[in-house]
Nucleic acid binder design. Structure first.
Lengths: 218, 218
DNA sequence: TATTATTTTTAGGTTAGTCTAAAAATATAT
DNA sequence: ATATATTTTTAGACTAACCTAAAAATAATA
């Protein structure tokens, strides 16, 4: 059994070790967890002793298979609980993160299994992030983002790359929720803002906003 | 915000300060929490500094109003989660305690409020224990227990005084679940075991079993 | 390549919660 | 009431997770 803190470290390392094969750096982890590099070094040694990460001094850290399993199971729990909070308790998608951060550390395999069943085995959480299956497989989105679309191309919103409350609230307020169909009407060369059509209404959104929306081309 | 551990101490003190006005003794708390008396003394000092308990050396400890509020709110959460686990996730009544021990420490007023609504504002948990309301009021059962009944008296099971898995499993196996109507057919003078009628079937139960069943006379 | 800047690690300390062993206070029994 | 037993507290130490400040390693730049 691992502590709350260990689980959070593993989650942070997982988050930054998806793309590259390089080890995740101490500072990146410290930043993600709002702690100091020296604390990270301490914890990494502990995780290394437990064979949950591979660690070479000054060379960053990578997850072992055991470490990855734990990280993914925590993420699975986080996302399942988010579905519960939104679908069953009627929370908004921008309100669930902090509560799920706590719930993800509840230890009970049976609970997760039953929760999954209760929620009808959802594949995505309320932000469109894929829910890992019980064996640790994750279905990542291919990263097509709205700002990649050209004039007259169309897509459906399937996720977000930025999870801040302010962004989520903004998206909801302009009708950019999961499943919404978008057509690009115009792209402004100067600042890459774009005019888009959603539900027969036109809106203009900034590059900052469009580059954080994951879409599926249609 | 209080830690997981502080909340458990407050809950333990609450548990043993219901009846008498005397302070709860260090050893009783140590026993309840599977820790040592010296650890309890330390924690009591901390809780006393925070004005959550009143403490006089060698004289035991009592909760302040602030401490009681926290204890009761943790118990409220515990029991609401137990209802969730049994009603929504189909856990058995003997399987939910350990999971609820974890869930009771999730901090979010909004979550508790919505969970309560989702569960239709239950008044009792799956073991018949009363769920404190959001203002901290608790509806205790009057303690009429099955072993107090005399021959030919009747009652309905409304709760248990012992929550061990083995007891709960036993009760379920012989059909002694909440709401069951019981008629006392005979009381054996020698060992206080009794013959009872439940759902038209007769059973014999030990004094040990009958003195832990809370009933309502009918 | 030598120097400077950045990152990472080490060294030493802190707090929360725990422990053991011994001392002090209270309770019990002769 | 004195001696004995029990309970509670103190003293000192431990681990987990964190910190600051300084040292060491690596990376970036002149």
């Amino acid at each position: 059994m691992n502590t709350y803190t260990e689980e959070n470290y593993l989650k942070a390392i997982f988050k930054y070790s998806n793309r590259t094969k390089e080890g995740v750096s101490t500072n990146v982890i410290a930043d993600e967890l709002n702690t100091k590099a020296s604390s990270v070094t301490d914890m990494i040694k502990k995780l290394s002793d437990k064979k949950l990460v591979l660690y070479k001094k000054y060379k960053g850290v990578t997850l072992t298979e055991a470490g990855r399993k734990i990280a993914v199971s925590v993420i699975r729990k986080h996302r399942l609980w988010e579905v519960f909070l939104v679908e069953k308790l009627d929370f908004k998608w921008d309100e669930v993160h902090d509560i799920a951060e706590q719930l993800e550390h509840i230890h009970s395999e049976e609970l997760v299994k039953r929760l999954d069943t209760f929620l009808d085995n959802p594949k995505y959480d309320p932000h469109g992030d894929p829910i890992p299956d019980k064996d640790g497989n994750v279905n990542h989105h291919k990263d097509i983002i709205l700002s990649d679309l050209k004039k007259n191309e169309k897509g459906i919103i399937v996720g977000v790359k930025e999870h801040s409350t302010s962004y989520l609230k903004y998206l909801e307020s302009v009708g950019l929720i999961l499943g919404t169909e978008i057509k690009v009407l115009e792209v402004i060369d100067f600042d890459h803002s774009m005019k888009i059509a959603i539900n027969k209404k036109d809106t203009i959104i900034s590059h900052q906003a469009s580059k954080n929306l994951i879409i599926k081309k249609i």
